[in-house]
Computed example of a mutant assay.
Amino acid sequence: MHAANADAPRDSAETVRAVIKARRLRSRFFSEELFADPAWDMLLDLLQAEISQMRVPVSSLCIAAAVPATTALRWLKTMVS
């Protein structure tokens, strides 16, 4: 774990989990192709980890993106740049 970041959002972990769950439920109503960009899902996962003061392994972040690992890693590289 790491020290709390003073700049971290003040949203609760429960709020972020609810947003993640809602994003997963959208597939009931819309085609997943409409939401092919995994960056937002990765950022939500990272935000939840920051609020909970937890580290996120890259493999876990790839799973959170719900895309193939190669795609997630490519997006992660883009986001870091």
Rank of each mutant, 00 (worst) to 15 (best):
K77R: 14
K21F: 01
E33H: 09
V67G: 03
A49S: 11
S31D: 14
L25A: 15
V58I: 15
L47G: 06
M42H: 00
D11I: 09
P38Q: 01
F30H: 07
I51T: 00
D41L: 04
S59G: 13
L76N: 06
Q48D: 14
H2M: 10
I63V: 14
V16P: 00
L73E: 11
E32M: 07
V19T: 07
K21E: 13
L43P: 02
M1E: 06
V58L: 11
P38A: 01
E14C: 06
R55K: 13
T15A: 09
Q48V: 08
L34D: 06
A22R: 04
D37T: 03
F30R: 04
I63Y: 12
K77L: 14
A22V: 03
V67A: 09
D11R: 09
V16N: 00
R24I: 01
W40K: 08
A3H: 12
D7W: 11
R26M: 08
M1V: 07
C62D: 04
A3G: 08
P38E: 00
Q53N: 10
Q48T: 10
A4D: 09
I51S: 00
T71M: 08
D7N: 14
A13E: 14
V80D: 08
M42W: 03
P9G: 09
I63F: 10
A8C: 12
L25M: 10
R24S: 07
R10I: 06
L73P: 04
M54T: 13
S81W: 13
C62G: 08
I20N: 02
N5R: 09
R26C: 04
A6S: 07
M79T: 08
S59T: 15
S52K: 13
P9I: 13
S52W: 05
A8P: 05
A13M: 08
A72P: 01
L61G: 00
I63H: 12
L47C: 15
A13K: 10
F30P: 00
I51A: 01
D37R: 04
R17I: 02
P38T: 01
S27Y: 05
A69W: 10
P57I: 06
S52F: 03
L61R: 01
R28G: 05
E50N: 12
A72D: 00
L61W: 03
T15H: 06
C62Y: 00
F30I: 01
I20L: 09
A36V: 11
V56A: 06
R55F: 10
P9L: 11
S52A: 12
L73F: 11
P57T: 13
D7K: 14
R10T: 11
A36D: 11
L47N: 10
S12A: 09
T15V: 13
T70L: 15
R10V: 02
M79D: 06
V80L: 14
W40F: 15
L76G: 06
D41F: 00
A36Q: 10
R24F: 02
T70D: 15
C62Q: 06
S52R: 10
E50T: 14
A49Y: 02
K77E: 14
L25N: 12
A8Y: 05
P68Q: 12
A6K: 12
H2D: 08
P38V: 02
E32G: 03
